[in-house]
Design a binder for these strands. Structure first.
Length: 588
DNA sequence: GCCGTTTTCGGCCCGACTGTTTTCAGTCG
């Protein structure tokens, strides 16, 4: 999620914010201040403190505004001390952030954009501003063309050429790509590199391996006896458009799609250490390295060392063991408490795709042209024990009542025939109307095994009305699962405003469930919200909302996200055997 | 600006690559 700091209504105003300020907005302000301080040349550790705090705030499942309202001590949060706690309270209560206003007075805000350019960091940005008065990308482009940058300290001919090339190439800001979009490239790259002479292992690390919902680049790790052969091999990959850096053990290229690929080559004996290092996240790596340091060890991408003695690093397990930790799954490596949990041997046993026994939201079109029978076959082919057929209700442009009745009859007939191989569950993706009532008459609701309730209309409601709407639906005796709870699209702003914490609390009270929409462009709930649901004791259903047979396969992206949200098999509703599932969704 | 089982000061992760430096700073991940 990106928040436009410049447009934010909470900066530079004394008027109380009309709504509670979101964590994402606060985090963006802290990051912006860190950028400005960096350009100013402030103490780098102070800059880091703001970045750490931004991260803490962004990753927090509950809202800072709510903590402030409850008068909780924010200094208890990791990376937030007395000083920052006070600043956060001021942001929430008055909408003001004086430290940021002061920094803005020193450094024009537009300079921060320049940091996006490869090769431009805080020092060069500052030099461009102080020596040439440049504050924007456009001004930089103009200065380069006019030769005004030429001969300036730190700007050689190559740098000039690269910057101009970059400015002309980029017409819009770089966007992160969705995980599912880059998978084919990642796989093609791995098989291409694996063909190089002397290459033993090839693995895509980075956020791709952590299964983040979006990735900015692909970090590829290779072990090889001959590093040069491997880096040369990367350059021969057909999709390479531009070589950005090319060294003996490390190369960076840009593909035609705009995706950047970083390749690192290490010796086989360093595979584990390098894989830890390149899988990250940076915050996780720093936390682990700090542990190593405290134990008198040094950890880098080549191994674990005690003085000059190399203790190991061939496998990740060995690296973790040497620093006193059990193995931590890549999906957890975000420094969101996993190192602490590992130390206390309290890591979750993460849910796996093979634990999934069914899909609890599938549209009848997923049977392709073979109707319900085709759908049942598709589910059985995936090894599912059950599948819930959940077409939308009329208010969301779905089936008429009559068509739904006929479908329910069809499900009963087919179940008689299939005898539970698999079991078709009668459901509907029931629109929650603006007044919070469910968009089906009781006589139909009564015939359903479960409901999957959702918001597809009336996005513009205020936070209070939207929340009340959903809360009322949860109180319905026919409510089972809240589908795609926040309406988010990956990489976008939320489309409607909802107090998810209250919603989850009420779902817990009524014994219902929340959904994780597995589609790679949705992944709604987010990882952080999955963790919130788990912490509040609410089970999560991972569902695909598949509209075609092929869509059923997106389940794995949902499982990836669930793992990032610390979910275990027992936290996921659709890992339950049929009998148990029936009991859990039965209406009291 | 944060943090503490070598605590309230003095630390704060670490190495590769590039370009311009004439021995290393800036940037990046």
């Amino acid at each position: 999620m990106s928040v436009s700091v410049e447009d934010s209504s909470i900066v530079g105003t004394l008027v109380p914010a009309p709504r509670a300020v979101e964590n994402g907005e606060i985090a963006a302000l802290l990051d912006r201040l860190a950028d400005l301080l960096e350009i100013e040349g402030a103490n780098p550790f102070r800059v880091r403190a703001y970045r750490t705090a931004a991260r803490t705030v962004r990753d927090l499942p509950g809202s800072i505004a709510a903590l402030v309202a409850e008068d909780r001590d924010l200094a208890e949060l990791p990376g937030i001390g007395h000083d920052l706690a006070g600043k956060l309270v001021e942001i929430v209560e008055s909408g003001r952030f004086p430290a940021l206003e002061e920094a803005r007075a020193q450094v024009p805000s537009g300079l921060v954009d320049l940091l996006e350019l490869p090769g431009v960091g805080p020092k060069r940005a500052k030099a461009l501003y102080e020596e040439l008065g440049i504050t924007t990308m456009d001004e930089l482009a103009a200065a380069l063309r006019a030769g005004r940058v030429h001969g300036r300290h730190g700007f050689g001919e190559t740098t000039e050429r690269k910057l101009l090339h970059e400015l002309e190439r980029r017409t819009k800001p770089e966007r992160r790509s969705m995980l599912a979009e880059v998978e084919p490239t990642a796989q093609a790259l791995v098989s291409h590199l694996s063909g190089a002479r002397g290459v033993r292992r090839t693995v895509v690390a980075g956020s791709y391996r952590r299964r983040r919902e979006t990735v900015r680049d692909l970090d590829v790790l290779v072990t090889a006896s001959d590093p040069t052969a491997a880096t040369e091999r990367l350059l021969s990959f057909a999709e390479v458009e531009e070589v950005l850096a090319h060294g003996s053990t490390r190369s960076t290229v840009r593909l035609g799609s705009g995706l950047q690929v970083d390749l690192r080559v290490v010796k086989e004996e360093s595979y584990g250490a390098a894989l830890c290092y390149f899988t990250g996240s940076v915050a996780h790596s720093v936390a682990v390295r700090r542990l190593a340091q405290r134990a008198g060890l040094k950890l880098n991408e080549y191994g674990v060392f005690h003085g000059d003695e190399r203790l190991g690093g061939r496998t990740e397990r060995e690296v973790f063991r040497l620093v006193g930790l059990p193995y931590i799954a890549p999906e957890l490596r975000e420094n969101r408490g996993e190192v602490d949990a590992a130390l206390r041997h309290r890591l979750p046993h993460l849910v796996r795709e093979q634990d999934v026994r069914g899909d609890l939201r599938v549209h009848s079109s997923a049977g392709d042209r073979q109707g319900l029978r085709g759908l049942a076959n598709a589910a059985r082919d995936r090894g599912y024990e059950y599948v819930a057929i959940a077409d939308r209700t009329p208010a969301a442009g779905g089936r008429s009542h009559r068509a739904l009745r006929e479908q329910l009859d069809g499900i009963e007939r087919l179940n008689d025939e299939l005898r539970g191989h698999p079991l078709l569950l009668a459901s509907a993706e029931v629109e929650i109307l603006e007044d919070g009532s469910l968009d089906l008459p009781e006589r139909l609701l009564r015939r359903l095994d479960l409901t999957v309730c959702a918001v597809h209309t009336g996005f513009a409601l205020s936070r209070r009305r939207q929340t009340d709407r959903v809360l009322r639906a949860i109180e319905s005796p026919y409510f089972t699962i809240l589908a795609h709870p926040t309406g988010r699209l990956v990489g976008d702003e939320p489309r409607y405003d909802l107090d998810l914490e209250r919603v989850i609390e009420l779902v817990h009270e009524h014994g219902g469930f929340v959904e994780l929409d597995a589609r790679p462009g949705r992944l709604d709930l987010s990882d952080v919200h999955c963790k919130l649901a788990k912490e509040r004791g609410v089970g999560v259903a991972i569902s695909t909302g598949a509209a075609s047979r092929a869509d059923l396969a997106v389940m794995r992206f949902g499982v990836d996200q669930a793992r990032r949200g610390w979910l275990e098999r027992t936290d996921v509703l659709n890992t339950r055997p049929v009998a148990e599932l029936r009991r859990l969704i039965a209406r009291s």
